[in-house]
Design a protein around this nucleic acid. Sequence first.
DNA 1: ACCTTATATAACTATATAGTCATACAGTTG
DNA 2: CAACTGTATGACTATATAGTTATATAAGGT
Lengths: 122, 122
Amino acid sequence: MQTKFETISGKFVPNPEALADDALELVAARFKALSEPTRLRLLAALKGGERNVTELVEFTGTSQANISRQLLVLTQAGILGRRKSGLHTFYFVADKAIYDLCELVCGSVQDRLARQNRAFGK
Amino acid sequence: MQTKFETISGKFVPNPEALADDALELVAARFKALSEPTRLRLLAALKGGERNVTELVEFTGTSQANISRQLLVLTQAGILGRRKSGLHTFYFVADKAIYDLCELVCGSVQDRLARQNRAFGK
DNA sequence: ACCTTATATAACTATATAGTCATACAGTTG
DNA sequence: CAACTGTATGACTATATAGTTATATAAGGT
């Protein structure tokens, strides 16, 4: 699959500089890591600082196995970091920009709901 | 699945106000819409203004059927809008905040690559 | 009316992954 | 070391969905 850009002539040609397919894949992967409610719940739980797995399990209400797997996903995506201490593993947010992202999306979602409500005369 | 928050006592309790599960679902859905390279390519193509389906097919290099489907996904997510004119359907970005999101993520991705390179002494 | 072009959609395949259960592994305590 | 606790992981199921092929629909041109 080849990304192309339009020239002045109006024809599409291979894009020489921006948005290499690799970059798109990375950006898509980052969004994908944020595309599950359970993982967003984990990020919400970690907003106040690091937590161990047991605390996160209690917070989210799903199984420990599942939480460990979702924490792995977020860690491999570079969003979380971890620190081991004895029996415990503490997870923390390594990429604070995540919260800016979430707030932007919250704004978009609210705008959209507002638009829909207006459209229904509410 | 129940979202809970910590109190001063240190115990998790049902969260009375923020981050209703519905909201999390909506935010997750928005991220999910952005989690595919093909859809990001479409957004890149639409940055300069509206385009019809044929142009977008040429730009992305995948099948027309697939493009129509991905455009539908983005439209239903509230990210794109559409306008029909004769034989053509023009798609355009309805939620400009999308580009802020993408730039934030690009920054995060670059930071992360930089960190990795440093870790490898590069 | 017929042909062509632009777009949408149905049916299908292949793949990815969230969640579960059971189990392994690693550190801690007695 | 034996028993326990906290975390990770393998195997599995169920579901979602990207992409394909073929076809339908709809608007224009002749």
